[in-house]
Write a protein that binds this DNA or RNA. Structure first.
Lengths: 195, 195
DNA sequence: ATTTACTGATTGATGGATCAATCAACTCTC
DNA sequence: GAGAGTTGATTGATCCATCAATCAGTAAAT
């Protein structure tokens, strides 16, 4: 059981357990003991690998963020036209791995944490900037550059808002409805501010 | 100092202190002792008036919510045309009392709490429904009813999203920029789906 | 034998909640 | 109008649970 080379597997397991725990509880009031227990190890081991609890939480956040980034990049690769690229980004945001009750819950929790933890805020800003620049890049082929920035900001806010609302309703909503709201925004904005 | 009739004043003071404390900390990890201290009373008194800490938090939330509702209603009264009513609602959402760093911080905190506290979720849903019905009421004079619902949902999400992003940026942003994003959405949506 | 992986036990701090006791004002006598 | 109860407001002290973090020590692999 204690053979060498377990370190990475344990780290992954702990991050995964933290994610599930946070999502299930819908809050960052999770104990190291519970996370470790879910990962099948002792609380002491979690501290051994991550140091403070805060570091484990941040690592979990980073994991979620990078997973999301990869999903969007993968979708982007399959798109040819600028308009298709926009749809790919939006679709990536609401893909099945992202637009899932537990994941949404975790996202909102991290946002809340960012209010009081500068490290968390920094991570989220990185994600926002990346999304923004992806959107602008695709939009500038369709609308004037200043408009592209404005629309990208709107899309970013709209996506976050849709997530927020999704987190609040008890029952799960179809991702397609969420996508439709954002796509409609895109369509009318592009039509309203032609190049 | 300890004359009868202090109850209401104390309740108000405690709620106000809780609000400031939550906003300043940017989190619900506030202690009863700190809140009470800020209100100039002992922690025991806070328990005396509100029972559990949870109840004090919920009362604070209710306070914020009703304050917001009143601001919107006041703005609505001054509007004549449907379009003006829409602007009034949006303006109310981003009025100086609402769109303030501390208040925004408190809002997001409450949203996060709603993930794990059904009582908080219920309160927020009431606010969302009220906003939605206000928007639909004004919109139905301008666009077909199904569109009105869709646009209202979009506006609601967009407002929440703008708040979310505002909470994250370190520096304070002008409310006018936030209003502009939402107003632009309104304009293009109404123009894009005429009655 | 040394390194790597791991744990149980423990500590120290925090914080919610409770309770018995005080204090000030008001009311009801006689 | 001076005590004698009554009630509401308030607090300090205390209890109890939770939890992050540490540490000393065990077990396995090399």
């Amino acid at each position: 059981m204690t053979r060498p080379g377990m370190a990475e597997a344990r780290r992954r397991a702990l991050i995964g357990a933290a994610l599930v725990e946070i999502a299930e509880r819908g809050s960052l009031d999770v104990t190291v003991a519970r996370i470790a227990g879910r990962a099948g190890v002792s609380a002491a081991l979690a501290h051994h690998y991550f140091g403070a609890k805060e570091d484990l939480i941040l690592a979990t956040m980073r994991h979620l963020l990078s997973e999301f980034g990869e999903a969007v990049v993968a979708d982007l690769r399959r798109a040819e036209t600028p308009r298709a690229r926009l749809s790919a980004i939006v679709g990536g945001c609401f893909g099945p791995e992202q637009f899932h009750r537990a994941t949404i819950s975790a996202w909102l929790t991290f946002y809340a944490k960012a209010l009081s933890a500068p490290g968390a805020a920094r991570l989220l800003r990185v994600y926002q900037r990346r999304l923004h620049s992806n959107l602008v890049h695709a939009l500038r082929a369709l609308v004037p550059v200043p408009e592209a920035h404005r629309i990208a900001a709107g899309i970013g806010a709209l996506i976050d808002g849709v997530y927020l609302r999704e987190a609040l309703v008890g029952r799960p909503t179809a991702a397609s409805a969420a996508v439709a709201v954002v796509e409609d925004y895109l369509d009318t904005q592009i039509a309203g501010h032609p190049r």
